[in-house]
Amino acid sequence: MFFEVDVERQVGEAWVACRFSAPDGLTVLFGPSGAGKTSTLHMIAGLLTPSRGRIVVHDRVLFDSEARIDVPPERRGVGYVFQEARLFPHMRVAANLHYGAGEKHGEDFERLTRVLGIAHLLDRWPRTLSGGEARRVAIARALLSDPDFLLLDEPLSSLDKARREEIMRVIERVRDDLCIPILMVTHDHDEAKRLASQIVAL
């Protein structure tokens, strides 16, 4: 199994406990809002520490409460596309994209910006982007950091129909062409059905 996750912790008032294993391909974490989907992604990324549990990705232990292993987020090999784009407001799009990539990915950079349709946005400031553009930039930025796996948190929320279709195709290309394992959170049944190779209900 590519992902082996078994975590629990208190988040605000709620107790979040999540246990699943998933192969590579695209796994959807499906459930109503407030079920702890985002918290689970945060724990896998290392941004939230589980009070107990174990996270193994591709045979690499990222967290183990018993063995006291807690790999810091920058060394987990994660690419995280947050629900909000979280682009750095003081850097142009190009600098945002290079943040995790350095300068070395010349060819990948060209190809990816073309595939995601953001090549014409490189000189823009993040605050001038539309919601769909910002999300595509965020996806590209995560992919350019050369991740071993991708976490997508509601990547299709608050987009109009045309934009959703566009991002949906992007996700399919990442899944099929780049072959990067993906964990995706959604509460939309149709999205889950169309994109997922496996669905985990929370």
Binding site: A45, E74, R75, V78, G79, F82, Y99, A142, S145
Partner: peptide
């Protein structure tokens, strides 16, 4: 601070996050 955690997931350690974000 959400920008800082985004930077962490992009491979930046604490010092680089401080310096660049």
């Amino acid at each position: 601070r959400r920008l800082e955690s985004a930077a962490r997931t992009l491979g930046a350690g604490r010092w680089r996050v401080f310096r660049t974000i």
